[in-house]
């Protein structure tokens, strides 16, 4: 149990480091469609979350997730605090019995549901939900239908999230700050979806490290996320071959 808790702390550390290194990138994405504070707010929040996670004596996954969630909630502020942090507090309860493929599926589904509810956002609204939904559906299907090992399932989920992030570029944002731009939001990559992808990528790295596995190659068909978020550079290929299969996924 404690080994699992430490693994979750390690993931938090990796995420914080990644967010800090992507801080300017996230700020640039946000300045195009919002108020240019996503990078700074997230970096500050995750740095505090690392401190809080390290302070936990004999950490277990549920406590770490809830502590990190609470810290993000209070430190990130704005809408991102409740979305990234609040959702983690609620989803963290699903890890009460430790980290198994089954509990992680439940965790992921609860997290997605909370983000959808809180932001009143659905797939295709041009928000972090567009990165989360394909990731969560792909992970669930990989575990429950395809019977893949956890690492392969997570790798497929990250790949799906990457395509979800790319999907936010050519569509009009319907929710969140970008939606206020109306049609001008077309052509911009969503910062919240982007930071969601960074978080998932780091979780995959730490999981691979802990499970002594290589990060599996997925048969990637992803369009590349453009550096400059120009709509012309994106293939309008939102629905990839690894998309969620409706049959048998419940």
């Amino acid at each position: 149990m404690s080994g699992e808790g430490e693994a979750v702390v390690a993931a938090v550390e990796a995420v914080a480091e990644r967010i800090e290194s992507e801080r300017d990138h996230l700020t640039d994405l946000d300045s195009a469609i919002g108020d240019a504070d996503h990078g700074g707010n997230m970096a500050r929040g995750w740095a505090k979350a690392v401190d809080a996670a390290r302070d936990i004596e004999d950490p277990d996954p549920e406590t770490v997730a809830k502590t990190v969630g609470k810290t993000l909630m209070s430190e990130v502020g704005g809408a991102s605090g409740p979305l990234f942090g609040g959702s983690l507090v609620f989803a963290g309860a699903e890890l009460a019995d430790g980290v198994t493929p089954e509990t992680v599926v439940a965790f992921a589904e609860t997290y997605l549901a909370k983000v959808e509810d809180r932001g009143d956002a659905r797939l295709g609204d041009g928000t972090m939900v567009d990165a989360l939904t394909p990731a969560v559906h792909t992970f669930k299907k990989s575990i429950e239908v395809d019977d893949l090992d956890p690492l392969s399932a997570l790798a497929k989920a990250v790949d799906a999230a990457e395509r979800g992030v790319a999907f936010t570029v050519p569509i009009r944002a319907r929710k969140g700050r970008a939606s206020y731009l109306g049609w001008r939001s077309v052509g911009h990559q969503d910062p919240g979806a982007t930071s969601t992808l960074f978080i998932l990528e780091e979780v995959l790295e730490v999981a691979a490290d802990r499970l002594d596995g290589e990060v599996p190659e997925t048969d990637a068909t992803s369009p590349t996320i453009p550096d400059d978020a120009e709509v012309e550079d994106v293939e309008a290929d939102g629905a990839g071959s690894d998309g969620p299969a409706p049959e048998g996924s419940e």
């Binding site: 809408a79 409740p82 979305l83 609040g86 809180r118 700050r177």
Partner: peptide, 9 residues
């Protein structure tokens, strides 16, 4: 938006 989301949480 911020008030509603933070209060609801």
């Amino acid at each position: 938006e911020g008030d509603v989301m933070n209060f609801e949480t």
